[in-house]
Design a protein around this nucleic acid. Sequence first.
DNA 1: ATGAAAGCGCTAACAC
DNA 2: GTGTTAGCGCTTTCAT
Lengths: 351, 351
Amino acid sequence: MARRRQAVTIRHVAADAGVSLQTVSRVINNEPNVRPEMAERVQASIARLGYVPSIAAQRMSGSRSYLIVALNDRERTLADWRSRQGSDWVNQMLLGGMLTCAAHGYRMIVELVDTHSAHIERELSGAIAALQPDGVILTPPHSANPLILDFLEKRQIVFARIGSSAPGPGFALSTDDEGAARDVTRHLIDLGHRRIGLIAGSDEYEQSAWRVAGWRDAMAAAGLDTAGLLAPGDFSFASGTRAAQALLDLPSPPTAIIASNDQMALATLDVTRERGLAVPDALSLVSFDDTPIVRYTHPPLAAVSQPIADVSARAAQLIIDRTMGRPVDGEPLVIPSTFVPRGSIAPPPSR
Amino acid sequence: MARRRQAVTIRHVAADAGVSLQTVSRVINNEPNVRPEMAERVQASIARLGYVPSIAAQRMSGSRSYLIVALNDRERTLADWRSRQGSDWVNQMLLGGMLTCAAHGYRMIVELVDTHSAHIERELSGAIAALQPDGVILTPPHSANPLILDFLEKRQIVFARIGSSAPGPGFALSTDDEGAARDVTRHLIDLGHRRIGLIAGSDEYEQSAWRVAGWRDAMAAAGLDTAGLLAPGDFSFASGTRAAQALLDLPSPPTAIIASNDQMALATLDVTRERGLAVPDALSLVSFDDTPIVRYTHPPLAAVSQPIADVSARAAQLIIDRTMGRPVDGEPLVIPSTFVPRGSIAPPPSR
DNA sequence: ATGAAAGCGCTAACAC
DNA sequence: GTGTTAGCGCTTTCAT
């Protein structure tokens, strides 16, 4: 194996510029107490030699590690990747996170941790100890896992919670799921729907409750009853099938269904097909997530699109700013989702 | 900002177990010259204290960095992520790569580098200097970029080339695109097709030429002419549209078209729709990649599915083995693609 | 404003 | 088999 030694070190730069290591270090880190002309000379040497600091060495000396860990749920992420159903959550997270990180010399590194693991603290602790990241971005359902939150808070690690709206330790960033659910429900009501069913997501996700709340809210505001119209689900296709069947078996079935994610919406679409129910003529259908495939189903599904890339970009930015010691607004951040109407919605069938 | 110091270091373990640092180090790295009972005692201390080595420190001392960089083309990857067309190349790469890495205490870290950049060596060099990875996994088109290959070889960095079949520096791993193209073409010929068009991919990708070769080969073996049936493309939707139009404008148009990727196949599907050509009755259509959405088009597209997860898992394994000093077979590796027949293929229309 | 010294956590090289 | 020493590349003290 090749001896791996840094080709160009701070020492080379210092020698080349005729200054001390310290001065070079100050220039690299934009620290004060360097005369402009000195700084310029050092910069020239850096450019000439093609010097890039080793993040391992920076980390070792007690400074930043320039690493941000994005913590995703192992089970769910792997299931998504294996099923190849086009879930692009991780892609969107990387899109926002990596670009923001790159702009500041940071790297984003994806870690999979099982939120149900009995040893979750050990797993997390291991990842932290090995990587020594400057910050951690939590994604649902980790964002609401008290074991993880406590651990990070205790260790004083800077972190962000994506999909959380509560204040508390760590930056909270959410996508206004309640508002989105309310808007969608209102949209359907405006189309003339009176019985609108909701297929809920897993309780483990905070979003699930918000979506239910938004739907309830809009229904109540319109004076509509929700009794029996809430079907439990867990984001899986199978649970979507069960929920859709339950809703459509109702004595007075809904004329519109909102599914809390795309997989359950696809399941619902399948159920309607089996029953010979036309979408959107006999049943309107809306989903959450807006993964790529819902644009290709027949009909394409109207969906709530969530700005995951924006959210993860903001999360990374907050962590970087905080790490750099810049003043940061720690208030919970809400980045609105958008409703994308497509062919799966229409006025209810006239009786 | 919180002072970031390792909570438990090798020193704590050594003290706890009553041995020297070196012995602990040997145990961590599974090195010889440690009596089983000693090793056991050390392991016990490690477990009790929850010790995990800092990879920064390991790197610093000239050992492994436990990092593998996966180098993807910046422009194309970002375009895929932004367009949200369900391209799951990166997901599949992470699936295979991350799991293999994790099994050996490694991490995979995605880097985006523009293969066309004038400063590509500088970009690469910066990433290497900052991260000091133990190995690099090249993806197309980087796998065939001589600037990158030379750079890595010169620096004696262990690397793998995904999508390359030529021997040479670095491990070559490919998916038998030529064989897959041959099989698909033969499949169509067996269905009765005589005029089979091919929409080629970008020249920048080695795969493009192989797919053409496989198609040519199968056509020749069946005594069929390919004159005029090869349409250039560059993997983009727009190029697919142009290519499909050119093929279908032929005096004697093909009864089947093979597109070198899903986007161009989708474009072809659109063109057929505009022209009122029924797929598969009037035209059979096959694509390469098998991204999630092609299962949801109407009709769903038959496609060549490539084992990206397997390939990246093998690539990571090769790098890790080599880094660990284990004997490794450096021969080019071929992991076959599989053809997934779906509703878009049928016998040609009878005249 | 600049430099010198010490040390981060770990492993290579060398003793014993 | 085990321990000791030196040093990786950088930043943090603390001098000057």
